[in-house]
Amino acid sequence: MMDAKEIERVRRFQRTVTQRIGVLNDRFLARDRPLGQARVLWEIGAEGREVRALRARLELDSGYLSRLLRSLESDGLVVVDGGGPDGRVRTARLTPAGAAERAELDRRSDAAAVSMLRPLSGSQRERLVSAMSEVERLLLASMVTIDALDPRHPSARHCVRAYVAELAGRFEGGFDPARSISAGDQELRPPAGLLLVAVLQAEPVGCVALKRPAGGSVAEIKRMWVDQAVRGLGLGRRLLDEVEARAAGAGVRTLRLETNRALTEAIALYRAAGYREVAAFSDEPYAHHWFEKRLPPGA
């Protein structure tokens, strides 16, 4: 259960921030449009953006986003056109007037930031900007979702490709998955295993897999990867905790994994999470360290 004092501090922070940045005013930054419309203009950007991607990134109800886009279209700032073979892929693009409005909003946003910083001393500004950066990191961490996906899902494919590419760049002599112990699609589907994918703002940013040979009480952790852009958010530990919980719920009592000496961050993570180094239990050609962790009964 959440602490009541913590909940109240979060709500007080929200009230202060929304007032200070002008969310309460229907004319955001003294323009004739609310914050929602201004944010959609900014997210569409110079290249345009598919409406479904816009909806996923902003986590908006489709009806509400449609109303925002219609308002922007009626103001001559946005056009929404169909594409693809069946015309169902709709893309929002800025008109020249929309691009000019976006530039003006950027200018006024910069001025608003200056007005927030100017009254403060140099040390206070540094503290505020550092605190804002920390809050942003923690809020982003709270926005990450983790779900089990089929290995053929596009987000799962993206993560595994990124995992392979990173190992190829970091391992001495590269990395060829064909030489490594298998973790194929069939091995990462229930009941043989699973693949967890972390998503932030509609983009896949991490994964971890569980391989359970013959459905026994011993399982292997595979395909542990976190996107460089979100490292430092604690996502690696969260993925590890989630796969452990899923394994324990399926009756697994011992988790094993092997890793390469080049992956120093992963090694530190495993040790901090209670994994102990053991003798080699596989002939994985890319491994230098083997780890094991006993899961408590009834976990």
Rank of each mutant, 00 (worst) to 15 (best):
T145W: 14
G173I: 13
E172F: 13
G169S: 07
E126L: 15
P177W: 00
L138T: 05
V164S: 04
S142F: 07
G206T: 03
G174I: 05
S121L: 08
V129R: 12
S130C: 10
E166M: 15
A148Q: 09
D176Q: 10
G193Q: 00
E126G: 10
L128M: 13
D176G: 05
Q186D: 15
Q124T: 07
P190W: 15
E203M: 10
Q201N: 14
I181D: 04
V197Y: 00
D176Y: 12
L149E: 06
A162C: 11
S155N: 10
A178M: 15
V164I: 15
L195T: 02
L195D: 00
P154I: 08
G193Y: 01
P190T: 08
R170V: 04
P190I: 12
S123L: 12
L149K: 05
I181W: 10
E166H: 09
F171Y: 14
V129K: 07
R127W: 11
S133W: 09
A162M: 08
E166Q: 11
L139H: 12
A198K: 02
L196T: 03
D176K: 09
A198V: 04
L194T: 03
L128F: 12
V197G: 00
P190N: 10
A202L: 07
D150N: 06
D147E: 12
R137K: 11
G193K: 00
A183P: 00
S123T: 15
M143P: 00
S155E: 14
L188M: 13
S155F: 15
A202M: 11
D185G: 03
G122L: 11
G174C: 11
V129A: 15
H153G: 04
P154D: 09
D176L: 08
M132F: 14
L195K: 01
P204F: 05
P154W: 15
A156N: 03
L167H: 04
G174R: 06
S121V: 04
G122Y: 06
S133R: 13
H153L: 08
G169A: 11
S121M: 05
I181N: 05
F175R: 02
F175A: 01
V135Q: 09
L194F: 05
E166I: 02
V129F: 13
Q186R: 13
G169L: 08
E136R: 14
P177N: 06
G122P: 03
S133M: 14
P154G: 09
T145Q: 15
L188V: 03
Y163W: 13
L149R: 06
P177I: 00
P190A: 12
P191N: 07
A198C: 05
S130Q: 12
C207V: 02
A202G: 07
A162F: 01
A183E: 04
V205L: 03
Q124C: 11
P151E: 00
A192F: 08
V144D: 03
P204Q: 03
R127P: 02
G193C: 04
